[in-house]
Design a protein around this nucleic acid. Sequence first.
DNA 1: TTAATATATAAGTTGTTACTTATATATTAG
DNA 2: CTAATATATAAGTAACAACTTATATATTAA
Lengths: 114, 114
Amino acid sequence: MLKTSLEIEEAAVILKLLGDKTRLTMIKILDTGECCVCEFVEIFQMSQPGISQHLKKLKDMGLVREKKKGQWIFYSINKNNVYYPFVSEILHQLPSQENKLINLEKQGKRIICC
Amino acid sequence: MLKTSLEIEEAAVILKLLGDKTRLTMIKILDTGECCVCEFVEIFQMSQPGISQHLKKLKDMGLVREKKKGQWIFYSINKNNVYYPFVSEILHQLPSQENKLINLEKQGKRIICC
DNA sequence: TTAATATATAAGTTGTTACTTATATATTAG
DNA sequence: CTAATATATAAGTAACAACTTATATATTAA
């Protein structure tokens, strides 16, 4: 399942996917725990379809998974993905984005479920 | 000079820059030694202006430097750049591209100078 | 059952990117 | 000096990316 060496073309595709501040922040947040679509809408102050489209790109590459919980769909990181070790090395070099979740919580907009 | 932590927006810009197979391969090659424009033209079978434009993007971000040697301009990696540690971690996870230089040499198209 | 909420998808728009060809400049070779 | 070589920049183009609004579906609340 894990990949010891990545072809350079594959790496470029992953880097391009991560080369967007919204998706990069999303996946950094997801690396610490799950999050649902409406929470991202609040965090990024972006339209709901915009958020869904970014998540679709991450999902299509297999970097994230979705799990339905009632009316919400929670996304989480897929640590079994072949590209995860590569992505993980990158994420480790980025500052924590937990403040964004803390702010959500302060506003009472964090979704706690099941 | 070195950066211990990168803002996420800056990281996204770097990842986008690296998220192109031509530039990613270029910088992986440059991480092992210098190379001139016409060598890249051979390696990538791309127009000379196309190569120059990719190199300009890398140079504008400070990731590479240029040095004129006679009629050639040699590019090399700039290890003093603030983003180098970040980039380096990524490059270490990619397969060597030295075969491309070896092939050039076999064709007698490697530029050895000064 | 109806209204509200959460999400995905479709369609349209605007800006960006990766290339190309054309051209100008500098250096070297004959 | 002239021709050839190496490079950069300008201009044009086609494909793509990131958003928006509109709309359809599913779930929950009243």
